[in-house]
């Protein structure tokens, strides 16, 4: 860490301590507000153009959309594809749901990573850095959405997951899947704006949508947001994840670590002194000061 970065970090830390709200507002002004994507499952036509665009953009396995009949069975993202579309038969007909990394506001995988290989960028995407990764796969344990996937059959495995086309975002482009969507089911933007659009759609069509925006609160809030015509548990979403950001579950432990390191050695040293027979004052010596000095 060079000196400038150190001061920057120290400054940020101090700023966080002193006035957290203010620094959040400052981040927002500098254009560092989190971006995300709003997925309107009522608009998705299941063409899987997003799957193809994603795989083409990142050199992954490109599915043969016309012939592979992949919609007939449930699929999951894999070490070969960052995103997949599934079909669900519901009371309101076929519903197509795109699945990829949710880009949590406070991501469990990022908090779990001991080398910052999983990294939450200031723009919002959660990225993975193979130069740092140990391949311990605890990100996969931590992720409540089961998104990170490991290349098990490689001597040098990568952790494969959507990174919201972070490189494209930096060039000012949209994620590849959003750009490819012919049905306007995907909308890219800042989460704040997307939330307003999503609420607007729900309130102006109260019969068309369930009154929940998946990702607003789930696991502490995610970058990707979903609208649906049917309850979310019917289209493959876990609804038991809670609204607590996952890193909060380890926060108490992480705070107690320095507490233990401060307190326990002193306690043990004290116990050791107490149990040391050499320190006992013999009765004949009494409570004199000279006795204490020895």
């Amino acid at each position: 860490m060079d000196r400038r970065r150190f001061f920057a970090t120290a400054g940020t830390a101090a700023g966080t301590l002193l006035h957290m709200k203010k620094s959040e507002a400052a981040n927002a002004k500098e254009g560092k507000e989190f971006v995300g994507v709003l997925v309107d499952t009522t608009r998705c036509i299941g063409c899987r153009a997003c799957e193809v665009a994603c795989s083409v953009a990142w050199n992954n396995f490109v599915p043969d959309v016309k012939n592979d009949n992949a919609l007939d069975h449930r699929r999951d993202t894999s070490d070969k594809q960052y995103t997949v579309v599934n079909r669900f038969k519901t009371e309101k007909g076929d519903v197509f749901v795109k699945r990829q990394c949710m880009h949590c506001w406070q991501a469990a995988c990022v908090a779990m990573c001991l080398v910052n290989a999983m990294y939450k960028t200031k723009e919002g995407p959660v990225t993975w850095n193979g130069e740092k990764c140990l391949g311990c796969r605890f990100c996969m344990v931590a992720c409540p959405f089961d998104i990170p996937k490991a290349e098990y059959l490689s001597w040098n495995p990568r952790i494969m997951k959507c990174h919201m086309c972070y490189e494209r975002l930096q060039e000012g482009k949209k994620p590849a899947c959003v750009e490819a969507c012919p049905a306007d089911a995907l909308m890219f933007g800042q989460k704040r704006e997307l939330m307003e659009i999503a609420r607007h759609r729900v309130y102006s069509h109260p019969d068309k949508y369930v009154h929940q925006i998946y990702g607003e609160q789930e696991a502490g809030g995610t970058g990707w947001l979903y609208l649906s015509a049917v309850p979310f548990d019917q289209i493959g979403f876990r609804t038991d994840l809670g609204t607590t950001p996952y890193p909060e579950y380890t926060k108490q432990f992480l705070v107690s670590v320095p507490l233990v390191l401060f307190g326990v050695p002193a306690l043990l040293l004290g116990l050791s002194e107490l149990s040391d027979r050499k320190n006992e004052v013999r009765e004949s010596e009494g409570w004199t000061e000279t006795g204490a000095d020895e």
Binding site: L114, V115, N116, L134, F253
Partner: peptide, 18 residues
Amino acid sequence: HIVNPIIGNSFGYNSVLF
């Protein structure tokens, strides 16, 4: 990469695993 959490270039302070 096992030395990464030990040498200074990538301390994941926020991690229990760290």
